[in-house]
């Protein structure tokens, strides 16, 4: 019997035999994965390895053929409230009539309930998040007039507003200037230090060691997952990417 005080520390994410397929082509093959709380996790793999699919299945946006994902020990429909999602930048229409402030404020909608309107509290949260990503001066700019890095900052702020425990980010560094990339990394570290967990789909193998504590190597099936120092090895990379890839060290 376990007492109330030594309650087992839940995993941030617990993925159990997850298989997702497009028709009969498997996109993810029987993935088992346990992500501890407070980890900064990079998801790495070649194109078509199922990185985005993994994120979308955790969010319940895709229905798996088999297996399940648990979020802080909860089923997806419950646990999703603890997640903030940063989609790929290209997934939305940036000509939509909205300002930077509007978009970031959308992050507060989840906790507002059906009839709720964003009020003073939500506006304050929005401003704080904008401040954090250094976009407060551009709060009233139309979103189509932003550079790629700025768009990414907006999405990041929208996730910060949610004050979530887990952050799922789909290629946040894609098409982003190096200043923005650095400040996103800073922010991620700060979040981790506050106890949050972040999963980041990442492309640049060179920076994996600098940015993340944990890494998941994916190529339809899970090649390896664990602390970067254990898992991010030449052998594992070859398994994931084929023989042509090396760390170039």
């Amino acid at each position: 019997m376990t007492g109330p005080n030594d309650k087992k520390m839940e995993f941030a994410l617990e993925i159990n035999d997850l298989t997702v397929s497009y028709k009969d082509k498997p996109v993810l093959w029987d993935i088992d994965l346990e992500i501890p709380q407070g980890a900064l996790v990079g998801i790495v793999g070649p194109n078509g390895a199922g990185k985005t699919t993994l994120i979308k299945s955790i969010l319940g946006l895709l229905k798996p053929v088999a297996g399940s994902a648990k979020i802080l020990g909860l089923e997806i429909d419950q646990g999703i409230k603890k997640i903030a999602y940063v989609p790929q930048r290209g997934s939305v229409d940036w000509d939509f009539p909205a300002t930077v402030f509007d978009v970031v404020q959308m992050g507060t909608y989840g906790k507002l309930g059906w009839l709720g309107r964003p009020g003073i509290k939500e506006k304050k949260l929005t401003k704080d998040a904008l401040e954090k990503v250094g976009m407060l001066e551009l709060a009233h700019r139309q979103i189509s007039q932003l550079s790629g890095g700025q768009q990414q900052r907006v999405f990041l702020a929208r996730a910060l507003v949610q004050h979530a425990e887990i952050y799922l980010m789909d290629e946040p560094f894609q098409g982003v200037d190096s200043t923005t990339e650095q400040s996103i990394v800073e922010l991620l570290r700060e979040l981790r230090n506050q106890g949050a967990t972040a999963l980041v789909v990442h492309h640049d193998l060179q920076t994996v060691k600098d940015y993340f504590d944990w890494v998941v190597l994916l190529n339809v099936r899970k090649i390896a997952a664990g602390p970067v120092s254990d898992v991010f090895t030449e052998t594992n990379l070859k398994l994931a990417f084929g023989s042509r890839v090396s760390l170039g060290e």
Partner: peptide, 14 residues
């Protein structure tokens, strides 16, 4: 507003 702008984000908010 949310569904028109970003469908999958809306879904992720439940």
């Amino acid at each position: 507003q949310l569904v028109c702008f970003d469908r999958s984000f809306a879904q992720s908010l439940g």
